[in-house]
């Protein structure tokens, strides 16, 4: 564990806490893409298949459980909670995320560390996580002004993988046989997708104006 990865994990956890705060405090999920939340739930379920077989550390196990439980709870809440689901922007959240699922799985069959069930699902979760934010970014562009908590949620979600890139660079230079090409390249793509969001987020922060993504 290094400071970059720990900071990344804390940002990831913060993004989830901000999203939970928004949904439970405002009893609303307006501006949140259910499709992105469904993709994230799949990412964690596919990545943490080894939850009960490979014990890395207490921290690792607890964080995996937190990510799985929180992501599935958010999906459940947006679909089933009578109050919350009324505020879901169904007509705006129309990104065809099944293509992202199919493309990620097809790529995982072709490019993986080892052609085993667990490694294919691990690579699938890495590729899927890289594109999972797309429905959310499209929804933000369509829904015009973005409320603060939603903006902060997306910001921390994007920042976490940027810190993971620093973590991979650090590990590359400090560990002998360290190579995570699949995660690293996918992480670069993932962070690049946030580039324009980060730009408009910075502008809104600098000018102290409402965050607005151009359509």
């Amino acid at each position: 564990m290094n400071i970059f990865r720990f900071a990344g994990d804390m940002m990831h956890l913060t993004s989830i806490l901000v999203l939970l705060l928004k949904i439970y405090a405002t009893k609303s999920c307006s501006g949140i893409s259910l499709k992105t939340q469904e993709l994230y739930a799949l990412v964690f379920l596919a990545r943490y298949l080894d939850l009960f077989t490979d014990f890395i550390s207490v921290y690792n196990t607890i964080m995996k459980l937190v990510f799985i439980v929180s992501s599935t709870a958010i999906v459940w809440c947006m679909k089933r909670d009578r109050v919350v689901r009324r505020s879901y922007d169904k007509q705006l959240d129309t990104f065809r995320h099944y293509f992202l699922l199919a493309a990620s799985f097809a790529l995982a069959l072709l490019v993986n560390e080892k052609f085993t069930f667990q490694e294919i699902f691990w690579a699938f979760s890495i590729y899927l996580e890289a594109v999972a934010i797309l429905p959310q970014l499209v929804l933000l562009q369509r829904s015009g002004n973005v409320d603060n908590l939603t903006g902060q949620y997306v910001f921390f979600l994007g920042a976490y993988r940027a810190f993971y890139i620093l973590n991979w660079i650090y590990r590359y230079f400090t560990e002998t046989h360290f190579s995570r090409w699949i995660a690293c390249i996918s992480g670069l793509v993932q962070t690049a997708l946030y580039a324009d969001f980060f730009y408009y987020y910075y502008i809104s922060w600098k000018n102290n104006t409402k965050l607005k993504l151009p359509a």
């Binding site: 990865r5 994990d9 990831h12 990545r47 080894d50 490979d54 890395i56 690792n60 964080m63 995996k64 990510f67 560390e113 080892k114 490694e119 691990w122 993971y164 973590n167 995570r180 995660a183």
Partner: peptide, 10 residues
């Protein structure tokens, strides 16, 4: 072969 703690990251 992948050493067993290969996926030690979240």
């Amino acid at each position: 072969d992948l050493d067993d703690d290969y996926h030690d990251e979240l």
